[in-house]
Each structure stands twice: as C-alpha cells, then as structure tokens.
Write a protein that binds this DNA or RNA. Structure first.
Lengths: 116, 116
DNA sequence: CTGCATCCTGCGCGATACTG
DNA sequence: CAGTATCGCGCAGGATGCAG
C-alpha cells in the first residue's frame, strides 16, 4: 500500500489516469484540458511514471505532425475500477467534506466567485 | 475528486485511516506503530484533519494518565470500504508495480534486509 | 502518553521559454 | 503538437525539544 501510495498519491496522477481512461487514445493536450491546470512538465512526468508502471501506453500516431496518444492498458483498467469506486464515493460525499472546512481556495476556483 | 484528493492524497492519510479502521478505538502511539515511520507532528496533523472531515473521532479515555483513542466514524467507514478495495488491488498487484522501477528505497525498509 | 512549537530541508509543482 | 530545460518557491513533513 505504501508503494502504491508512492506511485499515485500525488496531486495529479489519479486525475490523469482518469483522463486517460477512455475507449479511444487520448492526446497530450487533450489530457491537459481534461485534467485542468496542470503544467506540461508535471503532466509529462506523470505520464512517464504511469507508463513505467504499465498503466498507460504511449503511442506515436504521426511523426511528421507530432501526434501522440496515450491509452490506458488492460492492467491500468484493473486499477481504474477501484479508483472509479472512489470517484463515485467522492461525488456522493463531497458536500460532506467541504462542509467541514471551507478553507479550500482551489486550483479550479470557479465556484466561489460570488463574494466581492 | 480534486477536493477529495486534496484531503487524502498526501503521504500518510490513507495509511492512518486504515490504521484507525478497527472495531476498537486506537491509541495515538498504537496508530504510530501501525503506520510506521511517521513523526508525531505529522500524525497529529493528519488525525486532526481526518477529525475535521468527520472521518475519525477523538475521545479522551483518561485525563489523568493522558489516554486518547481514535475511532473511525460510520461516515469514515463508508470511505474505508472503497479504500479497502484499493488496498486489495495493491496487495494483488504490488509486484507488478515494483517490477518496473526498483527505485524505491522505502520508509519501512524492512523487507529487503535479506540481501547481504 | 499525547501532543504542540520551532526550525529546517527536499522536492513537488507552477511558470515560462525553447525545440523539432 | 508534444514535449524538455531552467528557475523559483511554497509547503509537506522530518527532527528535536518541551509540556501537561
């Protein structure tokens, strides 16, 4: 568990993995868009780590126009399922979590704009 | 999901939560022992955050000898279940993960002692 | 035993610019 | 488009000491 945590318990990995969990391969910038405010450096590092762990696969589509896609592996899918359970839990209970602290300023920072 | 990650995707929270997931309440130092090489400061901070989020409960057993126990709440249990799924996944696939990188030196460093 | 205060460090990660 | 190189910084978290 420690080892797993060392691999995925950072700020972005789970989100990136979720973004890659598509039937189709997903392009670099598409992942970027889906995930949100991630820097290319971090995304690149995260993807390489996921690749090393056999969770996603990198595939060059077209060398001339530089097109690359990432696709979750079957092994990755076995991980994304438990993660999906967690995601659904988060969706059901997120209000409970933010009810207690309010101190989150957010990387998204889209929903708390009402205060002048 | 971002919010959930902000709460639990640090180095220790999930481990601490797992350590608290007992039928009985668990004492501070007992958690420390179960979790491993966590500093009291970090453990304390982690526990307070879990408490704020209603995941664990703090209860003073004895004021004179300073005995405190932490117990997972029913809400916390709903979270520990998905986490348990993840844990089981980790147990089944940890070899796959460490097969790819070998670069983990370990906070526990207890299982690799066989090599002279 | 159960913490809190303090000091200190690494590194995770963001911003930006550059390349093929 | 898909990255890599560089710089800088905030903060998680380790170590240590103290206290009720």
């Amino acid at each position: 568990m420690r080892k797993l945590l060392n691999e995925i318990s950072d700020k972005w990995t789970i989100l990136v993995l979720t973004a890659c969990d598509d039937i189709e391969g997903v392009r670099f910038n598409e992942i970027k868009r889906r995930v949100g405010a991630i820097s290319p450096k971090t995304l690149s590092a995260t993807l390489r780590q996921l690749e090393r762990n056999g969770i996603v696969e990198r595939r060059v589509i077209d060398r001339s126009v530089l097109a690359v896609e990432y696709r979750i592996t079957s092994f990755g899918r076995t991980l994304s399922e438990p993660l999906g359970v967690l995601l659904r839990w988060a969706e059901m209970n997120f209000f409970q979590i933010l009810a207690s602290q309010q101190s989150y300023d957010g990387s998204l920072a889209g929903e708390a704009q009402g205060r002048s």
